[in-house]
Design a protein around this nucleic acid. Structure first.
Length: 559
RNA sequence: UGACCUAUGGUGUAAUGGUAGCACUCCGGUUUUUGGUAUCGUCAGUCAAGGUUCGAGUCCUUGUAGGUCAACCA
């Protein structure tokens, strides 16, 4: 009895309607059907979240089905990565299936179709067939082979199957209608000869079914109630239905294909072809380069499964072309990490500060919470000593009142430590500040409860103790492209918009507690952003990726 | 010179003939030992023209704009 009606997306509305029209709820079944020819990206995440989300919502099974009908492009590596990514996102599939599981069934059905005169072998060249296909505005013409006898078709098809023909010499076509307004209905190819080893069926077959002949039948075999795909398959729907109808048993469920708009993200590209190009041309290091919009890239960048799921949910689905602002994705990860990431201290662009009234040999271990505002994060000891590093941009010899940081003659608080006052500084021949001399208020230690510790000073800086800090490589990422829609320009190649500064490698100092951080551990480097440990980290070298910077309203004001 | 799909603030999405709402972005206020977070607020939208209706973002017509469709890819 929920009075408040949650709005449904258009696919949920279709499902609700089907349910209302008598489709039993137990018959609902979905599937996520990737082709294992590349790594999954954030666009696939939309489809994954959609299908598995429907499964959760309706308590219906969701199959993971690899659409592996083209051995020329598909590899086991991709199968493995896809399985990993889906489970990493937190979804459980009912069955792991492969279109190639159905090759025999598809073949048997094909024999029936040939016997019914609904399919024929064509041995023209692809150019000839393309010519006869017509255009969207002109009808096609029949192939001279269209009226081969059933016996001859059977014989030729058997020879195709037995490897007696060369690749490209013969195809099997469905006999539908060369004058159909829908180009896909103009005697589409059902089988082609491909003398390639398949990653699962090996050399069992040298004829492989095409997507259209495979997909609907696979959905039918698995009794998928709603076969959800992207909009570019809309015009395939007639064919999908035609094929299913050839084998449809009225006692069974007839799957229904419905289409939604693929999710695009600003400042990146989403097509597998282009992503593959970036990898192959070494523009990025790999499919999991943290600048890639792949699931594996986002994972390595520091994104959480939760943030990706919330992004998909927030962005929603529809049938409109879209370019979602990457700011929304970034908001989702910041929001998640703000709740979950421990706060630590790191200095990316260091300048030395010497606290002249702090004893030379003294060191203190200050208790610092991993999160000052939430319980349950615990704390660690942070070493403090006479010489520390702060961020270069946090010091100015002189500045106006709006500059809340360290300047000569005024005070700031060091996070979790003392209040210091800048007295003087040393500069090199270029006028660059090399050392800053400060004094500290030894009664002002954070949390000590003293009057001095409660003094309000305007700025709080992050810092690390110079002799205790450990070095770390920090990889700072910017968007991969400078254009909002790099592949949205007809006259320009998307690579013209590559951002030359998409990666900056920094030698930073981080607090010593990070020594034991493990791959994929995520932190907030206080006042800087969220960072996670990269897999390139070794026992002697720490590597961090910047997932996303913190909002910086000062940077905006300052320019 | 076709068929089909789509059109709501800068962006993404709701409103199922009955008050155009939410989120992100931008901008501003408050709080703050992160110029973060939180919180409050401002700006900003139904592609156009007709029609149906007491009432239209929604239905109809005609435009306009964008997209999809002619791989032995999926």
């Amino acid at each position: 009895m929920n009075e408040e009606k949650k709005s449904l997306n258009f696919l949920e509305q279709i499902i609700e309607e089907d349910l209302a029209n008598g489709l039993p709820k137990e018959k609902l079944r979905f599937r996520f059907p990737p082709e294992p020819n590349g790594y999954l990206h954030i666009g696939h995440a939309a489809s994954i979240c959609l299908n598995f989300g429907l499964g959760l919502k309706y308590n219906a099974p969701v199959n993971l089905r690899f659409d592996d009908t083209n051995p020329a492009k598909e590899e086991q590596e991709y199968v493995d990565s896809i399985k990993y990514d889906v489970q990493w996102l937190g979804f459980k599939w009912d069955k792991e299936l492969y279109s190639s599981d159905y090759f025999q069934q598809l073949y048997d059905w094909t024999l029936e179709l040939i016997k019914e005169g609904k399919a024929y072998v064509d041995n023209q060249t692809s150019e000839e067939m393309a010519k006869q296909k017509g255009t969207p505005t002109e009808v096609g013409t029949n192939s001279p082979n269209r009226d081969r006898s059933v016996e001859e078709n059977l014989e030729l098809f058997l020879k195709m199957k037995n490897g007696e023909f060369e690749e490209g010499s013969h195809v099997l076509r469905a006999k539908i209608d060369m004058k159909h307004v829908n180009m896909h209905m103009r005697d589409p190819i059902m089988y082609r000869i491909l003398k390639k080893r398949h990653h699962r069926t090996g050399d069992d077959w040298c004829i492989y079914p095409m997507y259209d002949w495979t997909h609907g039948e696979s959905d039918y075999l698995e009794q998928i109630s709603h076969s959800i795909c992207t909009l570019e398959f809309k015009s395939h729907r007639d064919l999908y239905d035609w094929y299913v109808n050839q084998v449809y048993d009225p006692l069974k469920l007839q799957p229904k294909q419905r289409e939604f708009a693929r999710r695009n993200l600003s400042y990146t590209v989403m097509s597998k072809r282009k992503l593959l190009q970036l990898v192959e041309e070494k523009i990025v290091t790999a499919w999991d380069d943290p600048r890639m919009p792949t699931i594996s890239g986002l994972r390595r960048r520091g994104y959480t499964p939760e943030s990706i799921k919330i992004f998909s949910e927030t962005a929603g689905i529809s049938k409109r072309d879209n370019v979602t602002d990457v700011a929304l994705l970034e908001h989702c990860i910041k929001d998640d990490l703000n709740k979950t990431a421990p706060r630590v201290l790191a200095v990316l662009d260091p300048v030395k500060v010497i606290i002249t009234n702090y004893p030379e040999e003294k060191e203190e271990f200050l208790d610092a919470n991993y999160n000052d505002y939430e319980d349950g994060f615990g704390s660690r000891a942070v070493p403090f000593s006479r010489e520390i590093y702060i961020e270069k941009e946090d010091f100015r010899e002189e500045a106006n009142k709006k500059f809340f940081r360290l300047k000569l003659g005024s005070e700031v608080r060091l996070k979790n430590a003392y209040i210091i006052k800048a007295e003087s500084c040393l500069k090199d021949e270029n006028g660059e500040v090399t050392e800053i001399y400060c004094t500290y208020d030894d009664d002002s230690l954070s949390g000590s409860g003293t009057e001095a510790s409660k003094r309000k000073v305007k700025g709080t800086l992050h810092w690390v103790s110079a002799k205790h800090a450990i070095k770390a490589e920090v990889r700072v990422y910017d968007r991969l492209f400078t254009d909002e829609a790099p592949d949205g320009h007809k006259d320009k190649d998307f690579k013209e918009f590559l951002n030359p500064d998409s990666l900056t490698i920094i030698d930073a100092f981080v607090e010593p507690s990070l020594k034991t951080a493990k791959n994929l551990d995520r932190f907030q480097f206080q006042r800087l952003g969220y960072f996670c440990v990269d897999k390139d980290t070794t026992s002697t070298k720490l590597v961090f990726n910047r997932t996303v910077p913190l909002r910086d309203s000062w940077a905006k004001m300052d320019n």
